[in-house]
Structure formats: structure tokens, C-alpha cells
């Protein structure tokens, strides 16, 4: 079985307990206006060109004999600055398993493990289920998900891992649709199920100035989760950095001066992560 993965990050500090490795699955059904991993949106491998440092030497545009370059119209094996690459490659499940198990010692000694993120990891749920099963009992596993998946898929995956980190972005279906392109009906249902389950979990809300960080929205989220633990993530204005590299446009205009921490005192069990 194979999955398309666009990054594997060692020593991920913000994706759960202990020292962790995070696997980023490619492809996401949501289109959040503030997404900071635009290379995780499309499920297919895509050209990723860093602009900074380009000397316009044109080498990447010349014909090459590599079959792997053909679909992209650029040579990915020639840039002297290594600015031209492909985001996303297929991983075989055994290959990924071997790679992740290499970190077993440090995961164990620090109470860490492996986190599957994205994109939306539940979009490649069969592969995800398989790797979770392989790691079960050997390495602590977590997922970071938008929760946008069918009830069956969500339950199956959540039950197969040790920890679930799930976003709640909006309670209002209308706003959710407006800023992410999708309905939040399934998300909220899955969240309710997660709350009732005995699977260890953590909710997260990105604090996007004037979008998700409004008092109305935050109060609604607080009411929805009640006593549940939630992390509120401060918006990072570097989010736009990678858009041009994958030929996308970042529409959100928020300067660092506009980023502040709103009143969150009404949350019963929240921490703000800066």
C-alpha cells in the first residue's frame, strides 16, 4: 500500500507530547484561507519552486532525460541552488514503518512518538490505518486532523491511535463554509463522538484575526467543548511564505501588528500557544 507524503519532520515540537516525528500526508478537502501548508492541499505530487535565490539561469527549463521530470515540465535534478523540487512522493507502508521505527529509542525515552498530519491524513485513511496498526503497541501514535471525514473513517482511525488532535475552527456552519470551503456538520459530529469516547484527545483552534478569533466564535467553541482541553494557536504571519512556490495565491492580508491574543478567559481549560 502507498501514500503520498509531502514532508516528514523530525523533532516536531508542537504536535504532541515528547519528542515526535510528524508525517505530513498530501491532500486536504478543506481550503482554509489561512493554511500555511499550501503544498499539502492537492493530493497529487506537484512542482515546488523556491523563488528566493533564483539566478534565472534557465537550466531547469531545458529538456532533460529524466522520466520523473516529464509530468512537471521542469528538470528537478539540475538547479544549482536546489530550488526546484517536487512536493509529495509515494511512500510504501513498510518503508515508512522502517523509517519511523528508527526513532523508537528517543520516542520512548521522552514519552514522544509519531504524529500523522497533513494536509488531511484521513484522506488517505486506508494507508493510515495500516501504518497505525503496524505501530500499535510499539510507538505512541497521534493524528492531527480537521475531523472532516465520514463517521466510519473517523471512528476507525481515532480508535487505532493513541492520541487525537482535532481542530475546531468554527461552530457556525456558514462561516466554516465561507472560510474553509466545506460544511462543518461531519466535523462537529465527529468531535461530539470524540468527546464521549475514551480516546485521549486535544482540541485546537487557530486564532485567525477577525476570522476565527471573534468573541462570538470563541464563545461558541467554548460552549461546544465545555470542560474539554483546548489549545489556541496564535497566528503566524509567515503562513503566506510557501504559496508562490506551488503557484497559489494567498488571499489573507494580516500583518503582524494585527495579531494579538483575544480574550479567552471564558474557556474552561485552554492554553494559548504562541
Amino acid at each position: 500500500m502507498k501514500a503520498t507524503i509531502f514532508d516528514i519532520k523530525e523533532f516536531a515540537l508542537n504536535d504532541g507530547e515528547g519528542i515526535r516525528t510528524t508525517v505530513f500526508f498530501k491532500g486536504c478537502p478543506l481550503r482554509c484561507a489561512w493554511c500555511h501548508n499550501p503544498e499539502g492541499l492537492s493530493p497529487a505530487p506537484e512542482l515546488y519552486i523556491k523563488k528566493n535565490g533564483c539566478r534565472n539561469c534557465g537550466l531547469c527549463k531545458k529538456d532533460c532525460r529524466h522520466p520523473e521530470c516529464k509530468p512537471f515540465g521542469r528538470c528537478i535534478h539540475i538547479c544549482p541552488m536546489d530550488l526546484v523540487s517536487v512536493a509529495g512522493r509515494e511512500w510504501n507502508v513498510n518503508e515508512l514503518y522502517d523509517m519511523l521505527m528508527r526513532g523508537k529509542a528517543i520516542y520512548e525515552s521522552t514519552g514522544g512518538g509519531v504524529t500523522f498530519s497533513g494536509g488531511e491524513p484521513l484522506m488517505q485513511s486506508e494507508f493510515l490505518f495500516e501504518i497505525l496498526e503496524m505501530l500499535r503497541g510499539k510507538v505512541h501514535t497521534a493524528i492531527e486532523t480537521s475531523g472532516f471525514a465520514s463517521e466510519n473513517v473517523f471512528k476507525k482511525i481515532a480508535s487505532a491511535c493513541d492520541f487525537v488532535i482535532m481542530d475546531i475552527k468554527f461552530i457556525s456552519g456558514e462561516l466554516h463554509k465561507k472560510y474553509t470551503g466545506c460544511s462543518n456538520e461531519k466535523i462537529l459530529d465527529n468531535a461530539k463522538w470524540l468527546i464521549r469516547s475514551n480516546i485521549p484527545h486535544l482540541f485546537r483552534t487557530p486564532l485567525i484575526p477577525t476570522i476565527t478569533d471573534t468573541e462570538d466564535n470563541l464563545r461558541a467553541i467554548s460552549d461546544f467543548i465545555g470542560e474539554e482541553k483546548i489549545e489556541l494557536l496564535k497566528y503566524n504571519t509567515l503562513a503566506s511564505a510557501k504559496y508562490a512556490s506551488v503557484g497559489r495565491v494567498f488571499d489573507l492580508n494580516i500583518s503582524s501588528e494585527e495579531v494579538s491574543i483575544p480574550n479567552v478567559s471564558f474557556f474552561k481549560n485552554a492554553t494559548v500557544r504562541k
Binding site: F11, L13, G18, I19, A105, I106, S109, T110, R273
Partner: peptide, 20 residues
């Protein structure tokens, strides 16, 4: 990365890992 306690602890753990 040194801006919160949790990350600081993880860096400390990394150093310990090197020593171990």
C-alpha cells in the same frame, strides 16, 4: 523554538539523548 517551556524541555531531552 525557545519561546515556550515545553519546547525548552524537548531541547533538554535531545541533549540527554545525545549523551545517552
Amino acid at each position: 523554538i525557545f519561546n515556550n517551556e515545553e519546547s525548552m524541555r524537548k531541547v533538554a531531552e535531545l541533549i540527554k539523548y545525545f549523551i545517552m
